[in-house]
Computed example of a mutant assay.
Amino acid sequence: MLRFVITLLLWVSVSTGHAAENFAACPQFFANGKPPVLKLHPTDRALCYDSFAILHSSQSKTPVYVAEKLNRAVMAEPPQQRSDHFFEEARLREAERATLDDYKGSGYDRGHMAPAGDMRTAEAMAQSFSLANMVPQAPEHNRGAWAKSVETPTRKYASRATGDVFVITGPVFVPNIAQSPSIGAGRVHVPKYLFKLVYDQSKNRAWAYWHLNDDATRGSKPISYGELVRRTGIEFLPGMSPGE
């Protein structure tokens, strides 16, 4: 009961600065229990789920990032049947969250950041369809290059890894959130790029996929961890210096 109360409080309150205290209920999704270091907006929210954690932005009405922990044991569990039941995240204030109507007729997919294909329990599968886990994604990119050359290879790598693989996925808005295009009456902002960081803790090795959010995007060579930090300004693995 106490853990539930603590988790509930963390869902609705987050401070500016380092996010560690805000993810106290779900540190397992971060390498060494340390969330990324970045400057937080006062209304950014830390959300803990069964199989992933989200730092959510009320400005973009999308994740800032979504964190997962994958490994051979997790990937050995049978995949769940997709629920395809998208829902508005009731733990966020109405003014801070995306709605189903925002995406309706927009021409964009509701693109998972923590993929449904990673979920290995019915609860986790259902939770992955929260709009807090979505960004407006070009449909051919979502179902094509992103699914085939980013999400599937990441799962395959985790299924062969000897230890834990930490994955952080998120959007990048250019030149910034306010000047990015948006969809719907609620103004859900459309990212210019998407990234997925993969960190193999046992090998201290990391790389990142970086894709233009466009139907014409094809698979490309991953970038280094250092390059991802340079492009985003976020220290995703604080205190660590992973190799490529």
Score class of each variant (00 low, 15 high):
L2G: 07
I6S: 07
L9K: 12
L9P: 09
L9H: 14
W11L: 09
V12E: 10
S15P: 02
G17Q: 09
H18C: 15
H18T: 12
H18I: 09
A19I: 15
E21P: 02
N22K: 08
A24I: 06
A25I: 11
C26P: 03
P27D: 02
F29K: 03
F30P: 00
F30D: 01
N32G: 13
N32Q: 13
K34P: 01
V37C: 06
V37K: 06
H41K: 15
P42H: 05
T43R: 05
T43L: 09
R45S: 08
L47A: 08
Y49H: 15
D50E: 15
F52H: 05
I54E: 02
I54S: 11
L55M: 14
Q59D: 15
Q59T: 14
K61M: 09
V66T: 12
E68A: 04
K69M: 15
L70W: 01
R72V: 13
R72H: 12
M75S: 07
P79H: 08
P79L: 11
Q81R: 15
E89W: 01
E89A: 06
A90L: 07
A95M: 07
A95V: 11
A95L: 09
E96I: 05
L100V: 09
D102I: 04
Y103S: 04
K104L: 12
G105N: 06
S106G: 05
Y108E: 02
Y108G: 03
R110D: 02
P115G: 09
R120I: 11
R120P: 02
T121V: 10
A122V: 05
E123K: 14
A124S: 14
M125E: 13
M125D: 01
Q127L: 07
S128R: 00
S130C: 08
N133C: 06
V135L: 06
Q137M: 14
E140M: 12
E140Y: 05
H141M: 14
G144D: 02
G144S: 04
A145L: 02
P153Q: 08
T154Q: 03
R155S: 13
T162N: 13
D164P: 01
F166P: 00
I168K: 00
G170L: 01
I177M: 09
Q179T: 06
S180I: 08
P181Q: 11
P181N: 11
P181W: 08
S182Y: 04
G184D: 03
V190E: 00
P191H: 00
Y193D: 10
Y193W: 14
L194I: 13
L197N: 03
Q201A: 11
K203P: 10
A208N: 09
Y209T: 11
Y209N: 12
W210V: 05
D215I: 13
A216P: 00
T217H: 09
R218S: 13
G219C: 06
K221H: 10
K221S: 12
K221F: 05
S224D: 11
Y225R: 03
L228G: 01
R230K: 12
G233R: 07
I234T: 06
I234Q: 00
E235M: 04
E235L: 07
F236C: 11
F236P: 00
F236W: 07
L237R: 00
G239Q: 09
M240W: 03
G243D: 10
